[in-house]
Amino acid sequence: MDYFLQLAVSGIAIGAVYGLLAMGFAAIYKSTGLVNFAQGEITMIVAYIAWTIATTVSGNVVVVSAGAIAAAVVLGLAIERIVMRPMLGEPVFSTVMVTIGLAVILRSSITFIWDAYPHALDLGTGRGIIRIGGLGVRGAQIAVVGTLLLLLAGFWLFFRYSKFGVAMRAVAADDRTALLMGISASRIHAIAWAASSVVAGIAGIFFAISYDLSPDMYQLGLKAFPATILGGLDSVLGSGFGGILIGLTENLAGGYLGSGVKDVAGFVMIVVVLMIRPFGLFGERDIERV
């Protein structure tokens, strides 16, 4: 039973990281209709920036988080403005291929800007192991679950009540009508990219605190795909919960069936979900009219 609980708890913790990334996927898909294959790479770069701040400027948690979030906003806006906006109006295949190209560039630039070795992101807190009953959990693991829940609530309120949130939903539903109503689609896209890269960056920092930084951190993005597919590509909240489900499944499968299964549990789940409910648990069903 203890073994099960330990697996479940660490599964939920890593699942929360996937969930944050998946929310980033969904935020972009919802407003621009494309899947951002560079999400994992953005996560990794923000985490590396946080590490650079921590080692060169100050290891203070507040300074590092503020710096990293600011960097994430700049990164998201820069990508949208320089790379994605010129592709407005091109077919989805082209725009998605552009994000794949971007992913490959960002992924490889890590080794040129920083190096190929793993690093520990030590902010003085979060790495210590807290004992609850028989379970050992890192502070950062608890914090990431809390953050996910907070952000889920925040996003829900944002989409429901804020002017920008409603505008984003409008652009997602029908961008032409939204344009006619005086909503600037490109501004909405910019906000979506910035928000998504901030959420991804937060996930990256938590991951780096609980585990370590390394140039193969971009694989988090691949792990978050199943989460957002499960939750529904167009559902930000669903994606968050999807992350936790995927984290749990993966960890339990890894614990009981072997580590080889752990790596692909999520991908097997993608195939199953797409066969049964292609629009995900919380997504909207696409109706095709001729």
Partner: peptide, 20 residues
Amino acid sequence: TGGQELKSILYGLVIILFLR
């Protein structure tokens, strides 16, 4: 030193520039 990485960056750049 970074042959594989440089190759990936080139592929990425080529994809983006051609599509654009």
